[in-house]
Write a protein that binds this DNA or RNA. Sequence first.
RNA 1: GGGCGAUUAGCUCAGUUGGAAGAGCGCCACGUUCACACCGUGGAAGUCGGGGGAUCGAGGCCCCCAUCGCCCACCA
Length: 859
Amino acid sequence: MANIPDKPTLDGIEARWSARWQADGTYDFDAAAPREQVFAIDTPPPTVSGSLHMGHMFSYTHTDIVARFQRMSGKAVFYPIGWDDNGLPTERRVQNYYGVRCDPTQQYVEGFEPPFRGDVAKDHRPVPISRPNFIELCDELVEIDEQIFEAVLRRLGLSYDWSYLYATIDERSRRTSQRAFLRNLQRGEAYLQEAPTLWDIDDRTAVAQAEMEDRERQGAYHKLLFHRTDGAGDVEIDTTRPELVAACVALVAHPDDVRYQPMFGSTVRTPLYGVGVPILAHELAEPDKGTGIAMICTFGDTTDVTWWRELALEMRPIIGRDGRILPTPPSGVPAEPYAAIAGLTVAQAQKKVVEQLAASGETVGEPRPITHAVKFYERGSRPLEIVTSRQWYIRNGGRDPELRTALVKRGGEVAWHPAHMQHRYDNWVEGLNGDWLISRQRFFGVPIPVWYRLDDAGEPEYDQPLTPDESQLPIDPSTDAPPGYGNDQRGQPGGFIGDPDVFDTWATSSLTPQIAGKWEEDPALFASVFPMDLRPQSHDIIRTWLFATMVRSHHEFGSAPWRHAALSGWILDPDRKKMSKSKGNVVTPMALFDQYGTDAVRYWSGSARPGVDTAFSEDQMKVGRKLANKVLNVSKFVLGFGEVGSYEPADDGYPPDVGATEVVDQSMLARLDGVIAEATTAFEAFDYARALERTESFFWWFCDDYVELVKGRAYGSRGDAAAASARTALRTALDTLLRLLAPIMPFAAEEAWSWWHDGSVHLASWPAPLAAGGDPDLLDPVCEVMSEVRRAKTEAKQSQRAEVAELRVWAPAERRAAIDAGRADLADAGSILEITVDDGEQLRCEVVLSPSTRDAPTG
RNA sequence: GGGCGAUUAGCUCAGUUGGAAGAGCGCCACGUUCACACCGUGGAAGUCGGGGGAUCGAGGCCCCCAUCGCCCACCA
């Protein structure tokens, strides 16, 4: 054959084949394919404000392996990629990269030059810039980051159709996001409500339940005295937040708590302020926590919100959106003690209040330190507060048992891989306690496409938002005017104002099937890719991305958005902790590609079972490197025998195996046939790891035993007919193995394939069953005998090429036939002069090395 | 507090309907440059977390316990 290199090498094959695939459009989606022949993947768009790490390489490889299998199986694979670039993470990166911050009150500056581009000076104070200037910098940095991302993903060999590339901030995504929201609004699935909201005081934005996490923090119980108005003494309550005493609206105990039953309905005066608050009963109060009676404040935690709502309590907010105590006390709260804390941070206020309580004698004993869980925004650095604000919500079942049940049912329509991941979904949906808050008081995001009429007094009429026609999308209500209005009416009584907020990034990324499939913009495409076949993602975002996508699809289409969900595991440090950037000196994907080769890194990913957290292992990459190298070398060797016999290489279609006339060769092919079946079944169930394991195991057996056994014959030691059988079987097996390995090791497989085929192995058909007709187990006793011969030579400290004068084998009758069939090949492979086979109860060998060999001087 | 997963050789992990403990790495020994030193051959190494139970038979099935990890929870 023409193109076999003298010295095969893995070096540089990624660059060569990546360029070739791109030039040839190897992975282009066939948009004309009918739905049943399409395999559509809802690829996770990486957050471009971070960096691509090994976790991405790991899970993205899994998906790519599946995509390649499906493509070879004859599917038109719809495999788009996008960038998740809108939202807070990008804003933060822009702030840190350019040394700026967004201040909507600033005026736009034409041609603004940021103070830095990377390497911001340590003592630099962020320069306030206008929102349009800030957005421009976001767009600029996102573009830079995305180019770097693309280079890494191409190097990983991901078989995307890059022509469907999208970004969650691009025009189509904005249009899709706004359209979906307007539909939700029309159907009553989206609504605006003023309510207590979890609030991040640093980012100055509301956050959703799904983005909240608990962190252990040091705190302390303070015992406070509330004074009974009937003069019967004081009530002691324990609290970790004494600074909120001014916000106290009631005390609460469990209805069955006999200690407090007599007090229910009576009134106590708060310490310091003397404000009268009722003592009430509620099931959520826990008798064995603290003194068994708690103070309800607006708001200290989410339980306060529940109590406030269910007990219909007053509102006495004292914490502002900047996390500081409001300048003026709530109505009915005396100004005098309050003045001391006005304007302080929560931490400062707590210290002050504790001093005040000590001075007034309304605290008992010393604070008792405790460690307790406090709610944080997952990207935040200070505890969340709860403030009242007007926000947009989408119904997700959090307040509607019927919808919740329906969404759990939708989850049941999806096949989960691994299956137990469905528990996480069910668990989350069943535990929801509020609707999905989608509005964010941020800047770099999809604007909420509504305006509000201003009444004659200039007050917004929030209950009847003005909406654009879908044909106008995307719009920006801060610059566009609503239908029937002119921009000169902006902010004027009788005119309008735009909603100043943007959607949370999940509100847009929950629409990735719609965005990638060009919903409402290319109906033919959308019809052929939706519902998608596969959603691959990490299990830690089941509650966000997966669930949110389900909600949007349920509302819009009344179906699940995909048929399968494949949840990948995490990468763990060797010490079994989740690998994190904070640990420093984490390896970068590019460095590993350079060191081991892409196929080797992919091999490490592919050998991890679906959904299982996996230790980062360079050892596994070394093994992958060995395998890739072996693929090239054995290919060279097999192809070096040349084309003989009836073998005809086929460009697509499967090569015929009719030339294998020897039972030894037929046995190998029968065994390979079993591997094809197992690998195919495994791949169809998304179990790429099993497919790899079976293929790899056969591959090494093929190289170490079968090739060794028949190579003498393939060279022609027993004549042309016997050689032709061996050569045909070798080439058939090689052809099959390259196809089986192509999804895992696309570069090495393509390289070896290219030596003797036109066209890409990645467009070749997946191996069909081989009608070999042989006995797959026939070679077992032959290989056992070969192993015995090798052992004898090794124990005699001889070369494997050492001559054997005589090999005597005893075997049960049913195995003798197999050994007889392989005896000529055995003689060749082991340099054996004479083989005798006799009956015996068990397989047993006696190996007599030739004296001349044994006595020959070594070295 | 509720739920899920894991526990097999020094390390990383397979072990698919229960039928005589496996692989790779590492280690030891030997060999070899005629496909492959990114090589080959062979070897040592495990009371399958612990305890019960059903079975002729359990790493696999049932119950209990322990340890680790993760998810969820209304954590005053």
